[in-house]
Structure formats: C-alpha cells, structure tokens
C-alpha cells in the first residue's frame, strides 16, 4: 500500500493540453510509474471523458441502424458504454434517445442489450461470489484444473499466431474499448484456443476496458467459457469475415490466421477432443 499525504487542497482542473492532464494522472499513480517503460501501460484512449463528450456521441449515434447492424464490428453501436459505466449517462437516457427516433418495438434490440446489463447486475448482487468462481462446470470436456491460470506471453504482447486476434488486443490496449462481438472473439480465443481460465482473461480485460464492469465482464466471460451457459462459445474466420463489415482494417487472410481458418466441425474436434459428437 502506498502512503498518500492527506491534502485539503484540491487538485488542478485546468490544463492547457491533454498531455498535461495525463502527466497529472500519472503522477497520482505510483503503481503505474513503476511500469514507465511499458508502452502498453502508457496508452491513453481517444475516448475522452466528460458529459459534453457523452452528449455529443449520443447525438451522433445512428440509433435507427442499431438493431440491424449491432453485431457487425463496424455496426451502429453507441460506443457509450464507458460513460454509462461511470454514471455520466444512464440506461434511461439511452432508452429515451432511442425512443425519440423509434417505436418501442423497433427499440427492442437496444432494450434487450441494456437488459443483459441489468441481468448481470441482479445476479452479481444476489451472488457476489459468482463474480470470480465457476458458476457451473465447463462443458468442454475439460475440468477447471486443465486450464492455465496465467496469460500466455505472446498474447500479452499481441504476438499470437493470429493477426486478427493481435489487432483486437492492440485495440484493447490503445483504446480501452472493443465492440461486444470482438470481446466475445477474444475471450473465446483465450479460453478455448489457449485453454486459459476465464478468470485470468476477465481480470486482464477489466484492467484495460474504459467501461470495465465487473458483473457484465465476468459473467460474459463465464458465458463464453461455458461455466454459465450450456455450451462453449466458439467462432471461426468465416464468422469474423461475415461480421467484420466493410470497409474494415483487419487482416483476415487465412494464412495470417491459421488457428481460426477452419470449419466449425474441425475446430470442435481440435478444441474439444474429449467431447466427441456435435456439441457446438
């Protein structure tokens, strides 16, 4: 624990440029200054905090396209989750903004996504211990002890054999934000391809996401892992190509994504050899 001298002088609120504010935050973070030479630790997102920025992003959000395109990595998602997580915006505000342009029926998909958050929060309040323990056994043919508690070094460095995965990790590091579908891809890769315990991945992602919410994050990881769902969530390169949208900047060539470029049947045999049959 770091000793902090109590001061009744408030910290500065005016900075001539963002770099000065970043330096101020770094000076207030002795645990981070110890990692000064780590380029990942010094990243600052393009997403700027504040109510005005949130209001602007809300105004620019093409909410009418949300329902049809939300699963695409370039779809019309709001990107407002960092503001909601930190109480700058409320779910009710998002709902109201949606209903200005849409009927209740048309807003169903957004309301459903907001309800996932409610659901996770209700679960977490009811059973806080479930935030870090396996709610159910893995349905992968493996037991928890078969999974590593450590993150692979190549993954931490965004140097896995798969270019798409590396690009997602870099985006997580630089922006502190990922599309929900991208989070599922990354979680699935870590748990099922690399056989790492979901807890290690959840902790890692929480540290970087601007909108990191313990309940939503960890229970989603459990859903991917199959400790809170009936089967593991996996994907393949064809699925990524389908949902990457156009245009995109991802490297989706099969040669650069050897672990992902396979049919679901092949992947199931490779990833879950103990299961047999068609479980995915």
């Amino acid at each position: 624990m770091t000793h902090q001298a109590l001061s009744l002088t408030p910290l500065p609120l005016q900075f001539s440029q963002r770099e000065e504010l970043v330096a101020q935050v770094l000076a207030l973070s002795p645990d981070l200054t110890a990692m000064d030479d780590d380029p990942v630790a010094s990243c600052v997102s393009d997403i700027v905090g504040g109510a005005d920025e949130a209001a602007m992003a809300l105004q620019l959000w093409p909410v009418a396209d949300y329902g049809k395109t939300r699963n695409y990595l370039n779809g019309a998602v709001s990107g407002l989750s960092p503001y909601v997580r930190h109480g700058v915006l409320t779910p009710a505000t998002l709902k109201q903004a949606c209903l200005v342009q849409q009927s209740l029926d048309e807003a169903q998909k957004l309301l459903q996504q907001l309800s996932w958050r409610d659901y996770f929060h209700h679960l977490a309040q009811l059973n806080p211990a479930d935030l870090w323990r396996d709610i159910e056994p893995y349905k992968t043919g493996f037991v928890a002890s078969d999974y590593s508690a450590e993150l692979p070094a190549d993954l931490m460095r965004a140097q896995t054999p798969d270019a798409f995965i590396n690009q997602l990790i870099e985006q997580l590091y630089t922006q502190g934000y990922l599309h929900n579908h991208a989070r599922l891809y990354l979680a699935s890769y870590l748990v099922h391809w690399r056989r790492v315990r979901w807890q290690a991945g959840a902790q890692w992602m929480l540290g970087h996401l601007l909108d990191g919410d313990l309940a939503s994050n960890n229970l989603s990881w459990q859903w991917v892992a199959s400790t809170f769902s009936s089967k593991p969530y996996i994907f393949n390169l064809d699925n990524v190509v389908k949902f990457a949208g156009q245009p995109h900047t991802f490297d989706l060539s099969p040669a650069h994504n050897p672990s992902l470029a396979a049919s679901y049947e092949t992947l199931q045999r490779q990833l879950f050899p103990n299961l047999g049959g068609d479980h995915v």
Partner: peptide, 15 residues
C-alpha cells in the same frame, strides 16, 4: 485499472 481508464475518470471530473 490502466492509465487510460484513470485519465478518462479525471476528464469526467474536470468536466
């Protein structure tokens, strides 16, 4: 939490 998340929080407080 990462530096970027702490910066985001500080910016919200400035606003």
């Amino acid at each position: 939490w990462s530096l970027k998340r702490r910066v985001f929080i500080y910016e919200c407080l400035v606003a």
